[in-house]
Amino acid sequence: MRITSTLNYGGSCTTPAVPHTPALDIVGLRFRYPTSTEDVLDDITVQVQPGDRVALVGPNGAGKSTLLHVILGMETHYQGSVSIYGHDACRCRHRVAVVPQRSTVDWQFPVTVRQVVMMGRYVHLGWFRRPGKGDIRAVEEALETMKICDLADRQVGELSGGQQQRVMLARTLAHDADLLLLDEPLNHVDITTQELIFHTLERLTARGKAVIVSTHDLGVLTVHFNRALFLDRRVIADGKVADVLTPETIARAYGFEFHQDYVPGGN
């Protein structure tokens, strides 16, 4: 039981961002699950600056979700350092928000869309405090931004996959975090929603927020991200999308042998 993380729930943020620090600074991160004998993350060093829009790319089992969990403070037994705006991961819960993988959410649970979006405000409330006017306003704004006002009183389980993903993003908007982590948000999502998600992320990063999106859809990289981080337990490649999106990187990340013949136009 993580007592420390329990004690951190709610209340006002007492750890303001350290000026001129990266949004996320990971140095020499190594992690393995207690039951495993193999490192899931092996010597990861990454910096993410405010305003970055990073795609986290890699095959299944590459450690994408694990990396996000470490950043969130869900996994605490790692080596190396992880700091968020100059503080240890999980020191300030207000600053990081997550859209988790669809499969970890109990969509059937009887909550309405509005209640789910309100969960983004819980971190500001903490124990025993009920949402106030400011919280309600933040929720309405988030619903409006994601164009789901008309769905506000529906049970989330009744919505389509795309609508549900909008609800989750609305929740992170209500959370008002500075570092957003989205774990495979594009699965089962319609094109309109996908565009809306990217449009919203672009607006957020333009305002200085940092966004990390894990995906295995290489098609969206070139248009929607300014940076790609290829991961397969280690960092395979990290840089501007145009620079790292090469057949060689893709081959290395996805673990198949690279042959010169595959390069378009190559001999």
Binding site: M1, R2, S5, T6, L7, N8, Y9, G10, L72, G73, M74, C90, R93, V96, A97, V98, P100, Q101, T104, V105, D106, F109, V111, Q115, V116, M118, M119, Y122, V123, L125, W127, R130, V156, R171, H175
Partner: peptide, 21 residues
Amino acid sequence: KELLVTSFDPAHAVAIGLSPE
């Protein structure tokens, strides 16, 4: 509200410092 969030989305609960356990 803590019951709601830990039932619906335990990952989010952990992310905001609340232990589903």
